[in-house]
Design a protein around this nucleic acid. Structure first.
Lengths: 253, 253
DNA sequence: ATCATAGTCGTCTTCCTGACGATAAACAGG
DNA sequence: CCTGTTTATCGTCAGGAAGACGACTATGAT
């Protein structure tokens, strides 16, 4: 097909973010309330237009910083205190996904440790961490004012579901679960991350054997903590290994 | 950020295809020769603009059919003879990836059985199956006419590398390797697919035990064949199982 | 007939996992 | 101080899966 610069239809390109964290033993996602039509008053994933001179990853990192104050973690750079894992998830381009115009959205997945306070971004609209169970609940939910608040706006329920599934499967064979933990954490805290993301209970003894026995996964820092109560636990940092082999097995049935 | 319909920069959106097959015991990708600038004379991945009313997957399936005559396999539908596996790979949107304008490309990965003849598509430009090793070779290669033919145009080397890596890892834990085989195939043929994609040698006895012992992976058709020489081998079709648990282990070191 | 080739079935050892007992070190409350 | 509770950590044992590899089978080629 010969190239004709005038022959392509124009698209708007956005990035949408699935930002996950573990709060109070539940997997939670960041949601923002829409202030305008369409889907006014409904919850949606944070996101925005990609600028004309901006890479997709850059746009996602910018949106993440605007909404949460988190920095995208650069594997090459130093470990920042406010660093979150950020990766591209998938792209959604159904012609009718946005009633206003043709929008292609490049969804990204971010994994962050539990933040002290879910601070609203630069905009005044409301932002919150909501358990993914709640956001993905099939039935329509209504707020105090009678407005419909779930399901999520646009195709964001699908995007969120895809992001959650990506996170669930990826912690099986990578060390990504540490992205949900603070810089220093205990084996028990890491186990609770797995339990929250998978929604299962894991045997503490076998889990301990598995993670401490995988070379390069965890590096002891020397310190201990009793912040979980009980016997003091060793503190670890994430090791250099990013791939778990053999993988952590997700219990089933 | 308030919504302003005039505030978004226009993008062109394309789909690019990483079409993989196994030919003569080597993993090969479909490449087309560019007839115009930029990168005139260089090889590139097949692809094209997404139409104004077209879904991304639809556009990818259309391009695949135009270039190869293959149909995208619909998991819900019947098994077509000319069906290939098709899935979204990733999206590439560096502002400078195309010197002409701002183009975001949604790359897709297609896996196809060895086709009888690599027939050129509707366009007259040349198309060929090339070993991925060759296409990804770092050093610049030159054709008979002295024109530079490698590396691939645009960021297609990166896209191809990502697609190959996706295929390599995905056959570990899914039954996707059967997408490289004809509808009926032997255990040995399936093993040669794994060997070509991974570039390793696998023990025929352990491989046989693994694939025939995984419920739902292979269903015997009753027939046998000697097309590979040696003792006649049982013919199988792909079973319904799509996830392999435990996975096929990729040897290392 | 003999050989080469490919397929199929077994055996053995090793490693990993799941189940679970036991001990250790903190805290709370009587 | 002693006891119960909580969490962490170490150890043991049985079962399953995988790697290494021997043995046998059924074709075609020489």
């Amino acid at each position: 097909m010969p190239y004709d610069p005038s022959a392509f239809p124009p698209f708007a390109v956005t990035v949408d973010l699935v930002v996950l964290t573990v709060r109070r033993h539940a997997l939670c996602a960041l949601a923002v309330r829409r202030g305008e039509a369409p889907y006014q008053g409904r919850w949606a994933l944070p996101g925005g237009f990609v600028r004309g001179d901006e890479d997709l990853t850059t746009a996602a990192a910018r949106e993440l910083a605007e909404e949460t104050g988190l920095n995208a973690h650069d594997p090459a750079g130093p470990v920042l205190p406010n660093a979150a894992h950020l990766e591209q998830l998938a792209t959604y381009g159904d012609p009718k996904r946005d009633p206003r115009m043709r929008v292609v959205s490049v969804a990204h997945l971010a994994l962050a440790p539990d933040l002290p306070a879910p601070r609203p971004g630069g905009d005044a609209h409301s932002v919150r961490w909501a358990p993914v169970e709640e956001l993905l609940d099939q039935e329509a939910g209504y707020g105090r004012d009678g407005e419909q608040v779930t399901p999520l706006a646009f195709d964001h329920a699908q995007i969120l579901a895809d992001g959650v599934e990506r996170a669930r499967s990826k912690i099986e064979y990578s060390s990504l679960a540490t992205a949900f933990c603070p810089q220093e954490f205990t084996v028990g805290e890491l186990r609770r991350v797995y339990e929250a993301v998978w929604g299962v209970a894991l045997d503490p003894r076998n889990f301990h054997r598995k993670v401490t026995g995988t070379p390069g996964f965890l590096v002891p820092t020397g310190g201990t903590t009793t912040r979980q109560g009980g016997r003091p636990a060793q503190l670890f940092r994430a090791g250099g290994a990013t791939l778990l082999n053999p993988p952590m097995l997700r219990p089933e049935a």
